[in-house]
């Protein structure tokens, strides 16, 4: 199965401030008790929203946002893909932050949710602009490796691992078909492994 290419996400943004926001916070474990990902969007940041009345995910000004802005090590902790699935189902189409945990970044990529990094100064500028004017529209470009505040005409560069960028642009972010492409090679590799041969 091939996928559509992902080259740009345009829309308003939602800033989620704080370092090391772990996947237990993005989607608490009790919502993993299900055999589908359906309905996860409604529970994104559920417990944080209860304890922080001003949580951006409760703020109507950010309804409909498609770009999530984050600080350092966003998505750390559990490998639950439910975290990016919840964000995607809430309406997020791309995440831009100072850094992401590796597993979160991998999970996001394979479901077609690009994550890109920017410097501390740039994220601060983006976050404060959006906080002051939530209607600010941003254009995130995978092809140009940039994010732009459209009205202000201010553009900053974003970084993505080359393979991630390539897989989004070529529509190969869902790896299954790629991995099955040359399946004879898989058998060859396996057959050469001492433990597969029984030593």
């Amino acid at each position: 199965m091939s996928n559509f290419r992902i080259d740009r996400i345009e829309g308003t943004a939602i800033p989620v401030r704080g370092h090391n926001i772990d996947t237990d916070r993005i989607i608490p474990a009790r919502f993993l008790k299900a055999i589908t990902f359906d309905g996860l969007g409604d529970h994104a940041f559920e417990d944080d929203r209860q304890s922080m009345p001003n949580h951006p995910f409760s703020n109507p000004a950010y309804t409909g946002a498609s770009i999530l802005l984050a600080n350092e090590n966003f998505g750390s902790g559990s490998s639950r893909e439910h975290a990016p699935q919840a964000l995607k189902r809430w309406g997020i189409g791309a995440c831009v932050g100072q850094s992401f945990s590796e597993i979160f970044l991998g999970n996001s990529t394979t479901i077609g949710l690009p994550c890109a990094t920017v410097t501390a100064e740039d994220i601060e500028a983006l976050m404060s602009a959006v906080e002051q004017a939530p209607e600010t529209r941003l254009s995130f470009r995978v092809d140009a490796s940039s994010i732009e505040m459209i009205a202000a005409g201010r553009r900053v560069s974003v970084a993505m691992p080359a393979a991630v960028r390539e897989s989004l642009l070529s529509g190969q972010w869902d790896a299954t078909s790629l991995l099955l492409d040359q399946f004879d090679d898989v058998h060859k590799t396996a057959a050469a492994l001492p433990y597969v041969k029984g030593f």
Binding site: R80, E81, Q172, T189, A190
Partner: peptide
């Protein structure tokens, strides 16, 4: 090196997995 099947067009490695452990939470989907 031993588990590399090939380099994918995206630049990533296709890596053979010798053992896949599964449990009830992350597999139904």
């Amino acid at each position: 090196d031993l588990h590399t099947v090939r380099r994918l067009p995206t630049g990533q490695t296709q890596l053979f997995v010798g053992l896949h452990l599964i449990h009830e939470v992350t597999t139904p989907q």
